[in-house]
Design a binder for these strands. Sequence first.
DNA 1: AATTATATTGCAAAAACACGCAAAATCACG
DNA 2: CGTGATTTTGCGTGTTTTTGCAATATAATT
Lengths: 248, 248
Amino acid sequence: MLKKERHDFIMRQINLHNRVLTSDLVQLLNVSEDTIRRDLQELVDENLLYKVHGGALSKSYHSSFDDSTVYARDSKIAIGRKAVQLIKDGMVVLTGGGTTILEFVKLLPQGITATFFTISPLVAVELAKYNNIEVILIGGLFSKNSQVTYGGQVITQLSEIKADLCLMGTSAIHHDEGLTDTYWEINQLKKAMLACAKRTAVLCISEKLDIALRLRVCPIESISYLITELDIENESLSRYREKELNIL
Amino acid sequence: MLKKERHDFIMRQINLHNRVLTSDLVQLLNVSEDTIRRDLQELVDENLLYKVHGGALSKSYHSSFDDSTVYARDSKIAIGRKAVQLIKDGMVVLTGGGTTILEFVKLLPQGITATFFTISPLVAVELAKYNNIEVILIGGLFSKNSQVTYGGQVITQLSEIKADLCLMGTSAIHHDEGLTDTYWEINQLKKAMLACAKRTAVLCISEKLDIALRLRVCPIESISYLITELDIENESLSRYREKELNIL
DNA sequence: AATTATATTGCAAAAACACGCAAAATCACG
DNA sequence: CGTGATTTTGCGTGTTTTTGCAATATAATT
């Protein structure tokens, strides 16, 4: 088995289970511990995973430690600032949840007039601070993990909406695989959100680039805007520039 | 289980409940007390929590003391404690919004199994901290004043629900006039909530007793429980004791 | 004051890790 | 094809990390 194959296998395992044990890999791949360690180290060097004692963890699985200090807040503010430019008076906007979206909302200009649909209670509360924004919270089962509403009822309601723009956070984005996610329900949800908006902007901190998870949400062509905290010319974005999407 | 995962788990517990017991973690994670203590110590070193005798506390809980800004918090906690007694395992409960309800939710026992419908995003977020509570957020227009969803869509959805108990806060209650309110939309909302629950409990701090506002929600007979922070025998409640409702 | 629950400390075994080395495989290039 | 360089891999050795246990100390409870 070639080294590259091993690396791919390891990454697949990680994206599947969010974690991997060195000892398991030794058995599965039938190589020595040293080889696995070297592999993991190389993948760390390529910024593809976190190494810990005993194995490795997925990068996308970044447990939201404390609520008070948002992880990578600076990057998220930078993203939010770019996203604000997409919002024009009178627009109908649909948003998902997550800390990045929340930072975006906080950066909206005070006087803005718009209609916002959202599946995130926290986003709704934040949006309510703007006098001229009409806020519609889409109701349904409430997910303890993602802190958004989901399930059949949400999808039904989404199907009745026609939005100018959809803003969503990312679990993972990959230049070939497109948008992917780990949970079935969230996957379905994102599909429904995409379907009801004319354009979609994906808000994505750079460390979630080039990662593919189990479930496919949509190909990269379905996305209108990719917003990261990086400079547009940044090398990491080159493979996305080749696609038909606007990078901000 | 990897150490990092354990740390993540502990932090999740802490951010969820603001505190953890060493003994609980021992059981949940199935490791020795020593290991948990070392984990907690390491998290202290990383400045992520406070360690105390018996467990640990969330940092944000002590620093950002926004709870204390709740008006008449002590009374509301007293009310919450009484309201908790009405909740039995397996119940379907519908709640409104407001700080009193929020305090009530925070006082629910950890293991409780129930289904909660709510029109308040903040209540939903708080309820989501309980593993065995299914939370359904009823969606619709979001009111900037009351921080709850309202409007036709909410009322339609409420009409499809059958709850064992409805918990609602109060604008005003009067022994003859019953429940009253100032805003038309909120009035309609409360009527709909009453209609879909077998019993209704009104959570009401004493200063809202004996007040009647413009719009009538329901006569006092439609209420099953009146919960205040006062002693049941208190003089102020005498005129309510004459009516057919349980005073807690 | 006595009893129980929780902490601390040092220690030892097991597991995981890092480093250098050498054999084997692969590559580079005349 | 051949020869030297490079890469890859596994092994041995010593080190570090992790974990549970026991003994002791401290705090909480009655």
